[in-house]
Each structure stands twice: as C-alpha cells, then as structure tokens.
Design a protein around this nucleic acid. Structure first.
Lengths: 172, 172
DNA sequence: GTAATATCACTCACCTACTTAGTAACTTGG
DNA sequence: CCAAGTTACTAAGTAGGTGAGTGATATTAC
C-alpha cells in the first residue's frame, strides 16, 4: 500500500490471516456452492490425476509431452502439427517431441501417402509397450471399480462425470 | 534393428500399423478391462481436468506452479519447503515461485513466530480474488451437477470417485 | 552444555522444453 | 497456373525447472 518501490499497483492487497475453509470462501463467490463428499472426492481425484502424468513420465524417462504424445499416437498415427494441437503446444515444440521419441525408438516418421507436405508419426511396439505396461495397474483398478457398479449406478456415475467435465470446460 | 548409429538398443521396435482400438489393446495387458460409458466419461474428465490449470494460469498471467501455489495457500499459509513438497518440485524452484507471487502482490513473506529458520508465505486478498473469480464458473457448474443427485446417488458417485483415485495412486 | 546433525530458505550455474519468427516444400482454390 | 494456405522444420531466445552448496537456526545425542 505504501511500498514505493513496488512495481505492481493494485487495490486490496493485505495478507489474509483469518483461517477460513475453502467451502466458506467459495460460498461468497458461488452462492449455490455446498460442499459434499462427492465434491471432495472429485477434488481429490482431479488432484491425483494431475500428478499421474508427471510421475509416470519421470519413471519412464520421458517428458510429460512425450508421454501424452505416445498416448495419442496409440489411438492413431498423426503428423507433428496435429500432435501439437492435441498437446496444446506449438508445432515447433512437437517437432522436438517427435525427434526425441524417434531417438528413443518409441516412434517413427514416415512420409504421408498422397500429401507430400505431411509426415506421419507412427508409434512403435516399444512405445506401445512402454505406455501399456506403465498404465496397466491403473486400468486394472479402474476396471475393478467400474465392474462393481450395476447398470443403473453406472448411468448415474456417467451423468455425473459428464456434468463435471462440462463444468470444467466452462473455464476454457 | 540394424541401424548402427542408433544409441538405444532394444527389442521389438517396428511401427504398429494395424489399427486397433485402445480397449482391445488394453485387454491384452489387462484381461479384466471392459470399456464402458462411465470409463470413457472418466477418461474425458481427466483429460479436461488436466488442461484446466494450464489454461487458467495462462489467462491469469501465472505459471501453473504459481496457480497451484495460490490454491494451496488459500487453505493455509506455509513455508517454501512445504509448498515445494505440495508442488512436487525442489525448494529452489518454489523459492522462485514465491518471489514471483510476492512481486505480483499475490502473496507476502513473513517470519515464522517461534522458528527463526522458517518463513511463512501468506496469500493476499489479491491472490485469493484471482483464484476465486477464475474458478467460480467451474464451481458453480460442479455445484449444480452435484445438487442434482439424491443422497443415495451421491454415495454411489463418491464410492466410484474414491475407487478411481485409488486406482491412480497405484501408479505412484 | 555443547558438539554433531538436521532443517529451512535461499543463491548460483546449468539444462530442458517451451516460445516466436522465419524458411522451404508442397497442395489447393479461383 | 499462380496466390494463398498448410506442413514440417530450424534458429535464437526465454521461463522455469534441477543439483549443489551456503548460512542461519533448531534439534538431538552424549
């Protein structure tokens, strides 16, 4: 407030000492907000899910972008530009990602049949194996959790997950 | 296989042309795996949730680490080292994160009462406001989705979310 | 009580993975 | 058939991380 050398002018800027729960805080901004076990569980899921790629990539000796690239390339071959769009980075960055995957033997470049500008990046067995074996324990656990549902319950869960996804998309 | 200059020796390493669905692929590694609407919805949720921090941080003019730091500091003040543990980075990195938050007016450093080694990092109103207003639309949507559940349904959803979280933790 | 050890916050040098800007090769629409 | 667009890439610069090490303070062992 009176720090002359401070480069960023602003309004209310004092520390907030009073311990207030997240939920209380949220209710001042989102009146409809009511905490619940499911929302807390969702919060926790999202937190853990966000750490997974970093950790899995670290163990595999890959960058997070390389890991995500392999995941996308598992579904279908694609060019560096398309990969860049999936990753949310520039094509310059994805060019480097592909370089590193190729150097590791996890992917190969091949010319696109019918369009001389394009390169197709194809995942190799080595890349596929890396992803599948690293993620297998998770998929086993997810399958088990999912199998425990009745069809009616599964429908409820799916509706909830789609609603939560839509809520998150509202930020983007 | 016969590329002499290749630095990474390995076994099976040819491109995988055959188009195979993720689900089929997974079943060879995780026999119990059966795709389902709920699992697909979960996959989508996790994907979107992973993009949210990057996008929100970009709009707020923060790095992803700065954003996550503010989220953690909303719950309680803590020192740079504790913050580093939460973020999964070194204390050297979190020292820089705190520098940048302080320079922005989103946080303040203060000496810890009773332990002369420690510094407490306290979020300011400015930092709190930044986070709450950026995330408000999401919380509103989540609250709406959650409110649509009966108590019995909420219990089912919570159990599922906790199961999924546990499955992900199995990787870490 | 004091010596050894641990913890906290920080600095420095270095590295990785990104960005922006620009280029060459190729395809396509008018 | 040529102007405009797309693809893949390179080069130079930058942000934000790591690893190693320092000084101050706290804790533990003896």
């Amino acid at each position: 407030m009176s720090d002359i050398t401070d480069p960023t002018p602003r309004g209310a800027n004092h520390p907030t000492d009073e311990r207030t729960s997240d939920a209380e805080m949220l209710q001042t901004v989102v009146p409809a907000y009511r905490s619940s076990g499911s929302l807390e569980a969702l919060q926790e899921l999202v937190d853990v899910a966000g750490q997974v790629p970093h950790e899995v990539a670290r163990r595999a000796g890959l960058s997070v972008s390389e890991l995500h690239s392999l995941r996308h390339l598992m579904a279908a071959p694609m060019g560096p530009v398309e990969l860049a769009r999936e990753l949310g980075v520039t094509s310059a960055a994805s060019s480097g990602v592909v370089d590193r995957l190729v150097a590791r033997g996890h992917a190969q470049r091949r010319p696109h049949a019918g369009d001389g500008r394009r390169t197709e990046v194809v995942i190799t067995d080595s890349g596929r194996l890396e992803i599948l074996t690293r993620l297998a324990p998770m998929f086993a656990g997810l399958a088990e959790t999912d199998a425990a549902l009745t069809d009616a319950e599964r429908a409820v869960v799916e509706r909830y997950l789609r609603g939560a996804t839509a809520a998150m998309r509202a930020l983007m």
